[in-house]
């Protein structure tokens, strides 16, 4: 059985959050560059140009891309042949968040009691940690610093199965339309379809990690992604909602089997600043 030390997990989580808050993934950056080149609205083009300039400054001067360095969402895929040594796995992840947000001068954006006292925990913990056990002896860690502006636009619905394809399209497009400028467009739209409702929400969020330009392996779902993207980009919202052609950079749909009575659909958006990284230990 392969041993994985918690010290290594702490260090990895810390570095992933620090790095992801200062550098956009190349695929995201390139998609924004393409949108900048093709944008017809002069105001939106100017905004996209500044977003690219912002990315240069963030990396060169080590200033976080966005001041909202998010609630720390962490996915762990733990190989069943691996053995964690040196302490509690979840505490190691939280310690990594604590150290990363301190060393990286990242904003601490978590309050302890959600609806009354709202006192800041001052170290950005606790992280949202989602662990699955998988074959193998490695640990894959994926991090998503999730900002509040885009997260607040999330929605879940349970359609009647008869509403089908069209019901899904209408729900997602309407959600992006109603969200307007709030989630910092051009957004990545994560869509979950199926499961029971907590599974649906998770599918939508995890869909945000997908690489730009890639589509769902199911051709029918891939077609739906293209159809929604086209409809969303006809809304006219544009970069920062000032009017333009690019309201979304990508629409990523993930599906899961569901109950005979249900058709749950969830939307989880990420701002243009689609920061996420992963590492394998």
């Amino acid at each position: 059985m392969r041993e994985i030390k918690t010290d290594e997990i702490i260090k990895t989580v810390s570095e992933l959050f620090q790095h992801s808050c200062h550098y956009l993934p190349d695929d995201v950056l390139n998609t924004i560059k393409k949108a900048h080149e093709t944008e017809e609205s002069p105001v939106a083009k100017e905004v996209l140009g500044k977003i690219l300039e912002n990315a240069d400054i963030a990396g060169a001067e080590q200033i976080p891309l966005c001041q909202d360095t998010g609630l720390s969402v962490v996915w762990l895929e733990l190989g069943q042949e691996a053995h964690i040594v040196g302490g509690d796995l979840n505490e190691a992840v939280n310690e990594g968040v604590r150290q990363g947000y301190d060393k990286g001068y990242l904003r601490k954006s978590v309050v302890r009691q959600p609806f009354s006292a709202r006192v800041n925990t001052k170290d950005n913990t606790p992280a949202d940690i989602w662990t699955t056990i998988v074959p193998g002896d490695k640990l894959k860690i994926s991090v998503l610093p999730k900002g509040g502006g885009a997260e607040n636009m999330s929605r879940l619905t349970v359609l009647a199965p008869a509403q089908g394809h069209q019901g899904i399209i209408d729900f997602v497009v309407n959600r992006v339309s109603e969200s307007g400028s709030n989630p910092c467009p051009p957004v990545t739209v994560g869509v979950g379809i199926g499961g029971t409702t907590e599974k649906t929400m998770m599918l939508a969020k995890k869909a945000l990690l997908r690489k730009m330009g890639e589509h769902n392996h199911d051709p029918e779902v891939a077609e739906m992604e293209k159809e929604i993207l086209e409809k969303v980009n006809k809304l006219g919202i544009g970069a920062m909602g000032y009017g333009g052609r690019t309201t979304a950079l990508a629409v990523n749909v993930e599906t899961h089997p569901c109950h005979i009575a249900s058709l749950p659909v969830a939307v989880n958006m990420q701002c243009w600043c689609n920061r996420h990284e992963e590492a394998i230990i």
Partner: peptide, 12 residues
């Protein structure tokens, strides 16, 4: 409106 997410640029 200021550009959401352009926190590094605005800080300058």
């Amino acid at each position: 409106g200021a550009i959401g997410g352009a926190g590094a640029l605005i800080s300058k």
